[in-house]
Design a protein around this nucleic acid. Structure first.
Length: 888
DNA sequence: GCGGACTGCTTACCT
DNA sequence: ACAGGTAAGCAGTCCGCG
């Protein structure tokens, strides 16, 4: 065994650096100076791992693949796997002689004439291959250009992809390429046998498989895809050992966030809480601060270690963190890990002793997998589809309140004034809340992450840091690679497919979207809402939409026109994205959705099915939008546009059919129709018609006792038969609305929920009048607190970049910054409306005297009118003639 | 010098 | 860095007005 020092000392066997094959002899010419491309490259460069402190066994496993990365020192791809028995990571280095590469449409002969290419020191060899090009629907001859290291392909100014006139698949990161080519699926189990990595197969019970095939239908065109995906959906996820960390930094000024890039101030506390119930608090003694009493909330078994030296404390923390295969943080990329690293360097700790690697945006660990939950929860798709918008703000406090029902501790003094033990408690609290975010509902978040990793073929670190378009991109890349399809260049898709043809209603949008039916204002009793089940994915599936099938090269397909456009769709082959999205849709709708509600199943199984169902929903909901997103590598406006156009066609046809059946449509939005007082038979007839005529399922989604519609679209209040209420779009429930208005609004809604019939309305109207009048008078007499008066509006960009206009919340924010408060995008400004120059004042600085009561009365009026309009009450009449009007 | 009509900006929502 | 459509409030601009 080697005597190698440093981090490599734990390796059982050092990976043998890649040998260079020589199928094609390449002459040596003197090389040019390499220049690394600066950070403004559009894609991430590989993270530089240089030797890792892992056990790299010859025979071992099975373990769960958590990451696949590239090690610059050995010039090899490697995987980090989690061993459920020892609860530790182990490592596997590529022994398959895989190399970075890209494709050229030039043959070897031509390429050899390219001096610059031939003299590139990273060039290994050429290989002539055949690929299937979906854009031309033809087999094409390509040359695979193989290189020694990823930077030779791309990432430097003289990389091969820059030398070639045109290079395919040259912008896919090496470790992703490796995942695709070796078919290593992150999130599944693998065994190491004689140094080779081998997938541990999941037994799918044959009855289940039979049931599934039946569920997907006799003419199931997804049979191959099913085999590929089933293990991803059915392999259980183990409980992975992990620890959450949180640090506190000394900050002499309140409201000032410590700068993690300079790390000027002391780290005064580090807390590590693990899934194995190990709690550690590392606390720095400070001369001027007393220990204080141990807070009651801090459990007795939580160990506190005191340190006199900060570097000692940091080193101890690094050791402790390295014991865990997964480190969880909340904003560790930008704060905790970044601060620890920079602080340690500043205090003279040797870089080799810091197990952290920083890039521009991210923080990784050499000894663990780092998951930054802030990034994951910040992801819009996760927020909206996985957690149904239950948290509205991406702070630890807001998320834990929404999902765990516990918030952060409230501090009554600033951090630097806390006693040591108070500080310890505060720090510990945050780290245990962070850990709990991965544990609630039977490790829901961890399971969701692993499942999304499997579907996207992304490591835990990449998955949690990338958005849904990257997840879909990676899945599509993989599906191309296994079918030997050439991954098209975005510019070729664009050139061949062209741009949009429809005109958007909103200025600056690229194509026309959905239809919203003009609501019939008033109260409607007995309303059924029918909607198309996942409309856009269904369209993509049933109408064969994909970047290669829309405006395909075959003249004979040109008759197959998409309504309202001149786009045509291929009649000869199944589109790849149509197949993938179609499969995900079918298996969600026909299997996981029903199974997640199936009471005959064990609860654990039901929960798992609902996690899969939610994961699939995330992909499906984004599947149409990505084709209209310029940065998406399969960006294809005609696909997005056709999807929306067929959607409009579907809802219009359905409305037409409903009317012909004598139904009254009172509202509709995108994929739904609100039908007044329909007969069950006509609903059935409409549904059957839709299935037959449009090939899309129309479902009875909701039944309201009554719906109150104003003349505003996307604004309504529906009361279900059981008295529960659906509120959409109304100001009263928006998060920026002042509390006083929300509460009065809620009272009105409560009153309305008790209404059973037309007759009840008269009573309800009286009650509502009373609610409105009471609130109106309370405003006049300023009986609400400043907090209740406050609007809460988010700033979405740095304050200095509001240049075109200065909205009120920005005015308020600027007043705060004058007082020394630091504000950043994402922060929510609470302000009240006041009489006088600016018209606004942040709550922190406001006084009750200056409240502009007229503005508030006006606001209450408009909040209530959204509902009162519908039920036929005039707000002005409720509160009587006022002020000036009296003399008119 | 001021107010109304208008457009544009911004946020938060719906599907 | 998934899309487009809608509401609401306010900021800013232009124009007319003895």
């Amino acid at each position: 065994m080697s005597e190698k020092v440093g981090l490599l000392k734990y390796m059982q066997k050092e990976p043998t650096p890649k040998k260079e094959p020589s199928q094609e002899k390449i002459e040596e010419i003197e090389t040019e100076v390499d220049e690394e491309v600066s950070g403004d490259e559009e894609e991430e460069v590989e993270v530089k791992f240089e030797g890792l402190p892992y056990f790299c066994p010859e025979n071992y496993g099975p373990g769960l693949v958590l990451s696949v990365e590239y090690d610059g020192k050995s010039n090899l791809a490697f995987a980090r796997l989690y061993d459920p028995k020892t609860k530790k990571l182990f490592c596997w280095y590529d022994n398959t002689n895989h190399h970075p590469y890209c494709y050229s449409d030039l043959d070897c002969e031509k390429l050899r004439q390219n001096k610059k290419l031939m003299s590139h020191e990273g060039l290994l060899n050429f290989e002539e291959v055949e690929k299937y090009d979906l854009l031309s629907d033809k087999t094409v001859k390509m040359t695979k250009i193989v290189a020694k290291d990823p930077l030779a392909i791309g990432g430097k100014t003289n990389s091969i992809r820059e030398i070639l006139p045109k290079a395919w698949e040259a912008r896919i990161r090496y470790h992703d390429n490796f995942i695709f080519d070796r078919n290593i699926i992150p999130g599944l189990f693998y065994q190491i046998e004689k140094g080779n990595i081998i997938k541990t197969t999941t037994e799918i019970p044959s009855p289940i498989k039979k049931q599934l095939e039946t569920a997907l239908g006799e003419t199931n065109k997804f049979r191959d895809v099913l085999d590929e995906f089933l293990p991803l959906f059915l392999t259980p996820v183990p409980d992975i050992k992990r620890a959450a960390i949180d640090i506190e930094v000394y900050s002499p000024i309140q409201d000032r966030i410590p700068d993690s890039s300079t790390a000027e101030n002391q780290v005064i506390c580090i807390s590590i809480v693990s899934s194995e119930n190990e709690n550690r608090i590392l606390l720095l003694r400070r001369e001027d601060v007393e220990a204080g009493e141990r807070p009651k909330g801090l459990p007795q078994d939580v160990k506190i270690e005191y340190f006199n030296s900060e570097p000692q404390m940091l080193k101890r923390a690094f050791e402790a963190m390295s014991e865990y295969p997964i480190i969880i943080t909340f904003n560790g990329d930008n704060f905790d890990l970044r601060y620890l690293y920079n602080r340690a360097v500043r205090l003279g700790v040797k870089k080799e002793e810091i197990p952290i690697i920083l890039t521009n945006e991210f923080a990784y660990m050499t000894t663990s997998i780092h998951i930054d939950l802030y990034r994951f929860f910040h992801n819009r798709s996760i927020q909206v589809y996985a957690f149904s918008d239950r948290y509205k703000e991406e702070t630890l406090d807001a998320i834990s309140k929404a999902l765990l029902n516990v918030g952060k501790l409230t501090l009554n003094k600033s951090i630097h004034k806390l006693s040591l033990l108070e500080l310890a408690y505060y720090c510990w609290w945050d780290s245990q809340v962070t850990l709990k975010l991965t544990q609630f509902d039977g490790n829901l978040v961890m399971k969701l992450i692993i499942l999304l990793m499997r579907i996207s073929r992304l490591s835990a670190e990449d998955l949690t840091r990338q958005g849904v378009s990257s997840w879909i991109k990676n899945l599509f890349y993989y599906e191309h690679r296994i079918r030997n399809y050439l991954i098209p260049l975005p510019e070729d898709i664009n050139r061949i497919k062209g741009i949009g043809e429809t005109k958007a209603i909103i200025k600056d949008k690229k194509f026309r979207g959905a239809i919203v039916v003009e609501p019939e204002a008033g109260v409607h009793f007995n309303v059924a809402v029918l909607d198309f089940a996942s409309l856009y994915p269904s369209i993509i599936k049933e109408y064969n939409l994909s970047y290669e099938t829309v405006r395909c090269p075959h003249p004979e397909c040109r008759k197959n026109i998409v309504p309202e456009t001149n786009h045509w769709v291929c009649t000869k082959r199944n589109g790849i994205t149509s197949i993938i999205i179609g499969f995900l849709r079918d298996i969600r709708v026909k299997w996981f959705k029903p199974k997640s509600k199936d009471r005959t199943l064990k609860e654990e199984e039901r929960i798992w099915n609902s996690i899969v169902e939610r994961a699939l929903k995330v992909y499906l909901n984004a599947s149409y939008g990505v084709f209209g997103a310029e940065h998406f590598p399969f960006y294809c406006l005609p696909v997005a546009e056709s999807t929306a156009a067929i959607g409009r066609y579907a809802i219009q046809r359905a409305i037409g059919k409903a009317k012909s059946l004598g139904m009254k449509i009172i509202y509709g939005d995108t994929d739904s129709v609100f039908i007044k007082n329909p007969s069950p038979q006509s609903i059935e007839e409409l549904r059957n018609w839709s299935k037959k005529e449009l090939q899309i399922d129309l479902e009875l989604d909701k039944e309201y006792r009554y719906v109150a519609l104003s003349d505003r679209k996307k604004n309504y209040l529906g009361v279900f038969r059981d008295g529960s209420v659906d509120i959409k779009g109304l100001t009263g429930k928006k998060r920026n609305t002042p509390q006083f208005a929300q509460e009065s609004f809620l009272k009105m809604v409560e009153t309305l929920s008790r209404v059973q019939s037309q007759e009840d309305f008269d009573k309800a109207k009286k009650e509502i009048q009373e609610i409105a009048r009471t609130c109106y008078n309370k405003i006049k007499n300023k009986e609400f607190s400043l907090e209740e008066f406050a609007f809460h509006i988010q700033i979405n960009k740095p304050l200095h970049s509001y240049v075109k206009t200065t909205p009120q919340h920005v005015k308020a924010a600027r007043q705060l910054t004058k007082n020394g408060k630091e504000l950043k995008p994402g922060d929510i400004i609470s302000f009240v409306k006041v009489r006088g120059k600016d018209g606004v004042r942040p709550v922190e600085l406001a006084s009750k005297e200056e409240i502009d009561t007229e503005k508030y009365q006006e606001y209450l009026k408009s909040t209530f009118e959204q509902v009162l309009d519908a039920i036929g009450i005039d707000f002005q009449k409720i509160i009587g003639v006022t002020r000036l009007d009296m003399w008119v």
